[in-house]
Design a protein around this nucleic acid. Sequence first.
DNA 1: TCAGCTTGTGCGAACGATAGCACAAATTAT
DNA 2: ATAATTTGTGCTATCGTTCGCACAAGCTGA
Lengths: 357, 357
Amino acid sequence: MREGMAIPSARGAIPRARSQSPSKGRATIVTLSQLAGVSASTVSRALKNDPRISEETRNRIAALATKAGYTPNAFARTLSSGRSGLLGIVLGSVQNPFYSELLEEAVAQAAARGMRLLIVHAGGGPIEDRTAEALLQYQVDGCIITSAELSSNAVNICAANGVPVVMVNRIPRLHASAVACDNAEGGRELARFLVEGGHRRIAMVQAPARSSTGMERVRGFVEQLTALGLEPAMRMDGGGHYDGGFACGQEIAKLPPNRRPDAIFGISDVMAMGAMDALRIAGIRVPEDISVVAFDNIAAASHPPYGLTTIAQPLQAMVHRGLDILMARIRDPSLPDEAVQLRGRLIVRRSARVPGA
Amino acid sequence: MREGMAIPSARGAIPRARSQSPSKGRATIVTLSQLAGVSASTVSRALKNDPRISEETRNRIAALATKAGYTPNAFARTLSSGRSGLLGIVLGSVQNPFYSELLEEAVAQAAARGMRLLIVHAGGGPIEDRTAEALLQYQVDGCIITSAELSSNAVNICAANGVPVVMVNRIPRLHASAVACDNAEGGRELARFLVEGGHRRIAMVQAPARSSTGMERVRGFVEQLTALGLEPAMRMDGGGHYDGGFACGQEIAKLPPNRRPDAIFGISDVMAMGAMDALRIAGIRVPEDISVVAFDNIAAASHPPYGLTTIAQPLQAMVHRGLDILMARIRDPSLPDEAVQLRGRLIVRRSARVPGA
DNA sequence: TCAGCTTGTGCGAACGATAGCACAAATTAT
DNA sequence: ATAATTTGTGCTATCGTTCGCACAAGCTGA
């Protein structure tokens, strides 16, 4: 059926078809142009609603394209236009569901803007050089970096190649914009909440120092405590994951009751959940014996056994602003780096005693 | 700096430089070829270790490439070779951490094979047509579909365009290969385990019927129960998520003790965790009053409050075999569809009474 | 009536890499 | 010494799109 016996063209033998034709019969702009009897450029322009193409031609071509099941080849377009429509994304460890939720949101919002996400890296391990190279190979228009850690490598590569970067849930370093929750303010709010709730001996389950957002939360929290004439009763490292939080909870549970804190600030929900579980297993009641507050508001924080009082990160808004920033810099790379902080919202649940009660 | 005053070439004015050069000074094969004083083809061949290029030239070019920070342009390569090095991935809802773990594994293993993952869709919502088109636009070499649901759309598009597809954690439909845990056998194993442990009244918290893997687990489980002369005491729909499982747990807790099941089979860990929490909140002890077993072995299943006895899906192996299948079909599209089942492993923890105890 | 403008298309050169074919130089066989 | 190989490179077309520029037709105004 397909051009049955090739008619030898006037210009002589056209060596069509390599060993195997790469695009197996998929319709291209050239196909369409032949069908429509116009040039390839006209088809290209008609398809992207160039105002210079007449209404009639445009409709005719559009109809033809639909009928032929035409899909533009993103690779050819990129080669020609320099824009890939791809956003690289570096994801933090799935051990923290926050990143999974972030991913889902990012995929949806990027799609709504006509962009796709190329996963550069996911997980806790270090990001290899070869991996980061993919960013360049695939000509990503921009890059989203969510991992609170391990990012600098990718950032440098992007910066060196003029790829705009936005960090989400992370404090900006050099050469990058960032969107984050106002972590310090969230920390302060939690400190006020606990102190107003009558807590005085407060333990902190911190993330590793390389987590910039975690450090901010700690900073705000301690700052506020100090302003209220208190200081943290203890600081422990929960490693950023459930198990670490659990271990901290065990430590706390081991303390004699009179030396035990009356509240725990978990720098992230997962760690707080670990700590809560350890406490309860040790027979310590939450919140009757110890209050627990945290940060993130992941889905599990609302599960009945936890009912975690926490600062909700405005995930949707963070992704939205992040993409705004990225797209703006893709259009105009001369824009200066920008850091946005979005206010989190305190979600009061049952894991901490409240002022009134 | 860049070719200061363009030397008018013999063939007349060469209109170099469009409005803005797309690749801002990034080194290309042509750059290298000029530096090395050889042709572009030679560079191309040297870089991919073509045996026809002399050792010396190859080394010289390799050194040059490193120094210039050369990165091949994947888009140009694709256009020319027809292979993009991209694998599309359709992800299930992040509400089930299993998919997040799968993603992390897939990203790592794909990278090890020199492939990148393009996220086509993530999450519970339906997959839009425009979204699925991305698969074609970006010329993905193959596609991984993990969602137990919502996949048919993407599968059809891939099939229609000759893109090999492998479904992971899913029973194959038409036009696709698949890798899954041996869900039925896992179900049987759990049934034997429970019955040997002395359980007789067993409830099942099922996933929606559209989850093919879930149905398989149920099938195997019921089959084995029947073979042992029993039948499920009740079947409930947990919707595939924690909240649904929790609701089922509440239902069960409401039953008078004599009508209560003595064991629950949660079709997935998340649902079982929900059910366990509901039971415990109602004061029902696990496993003393009711045993709970499940399927998946997500990270949280091992958390102390759950200690879930479950069938571990061989995640790593599943992804590995899935990629094997995909890569083989990318090389040779004529290969027939293939369905692989991998045996899961029973992980015994504390959530269920065991035969000996 | 003809210059000058608008409007709609076509031409052809990129974009960066690949691969078939041609071909020069070096090596071996006769 | 000449032909037949082998070995290493270069030439060039091609992948599908985009975009600057040229250009033809239709319209307006003097």
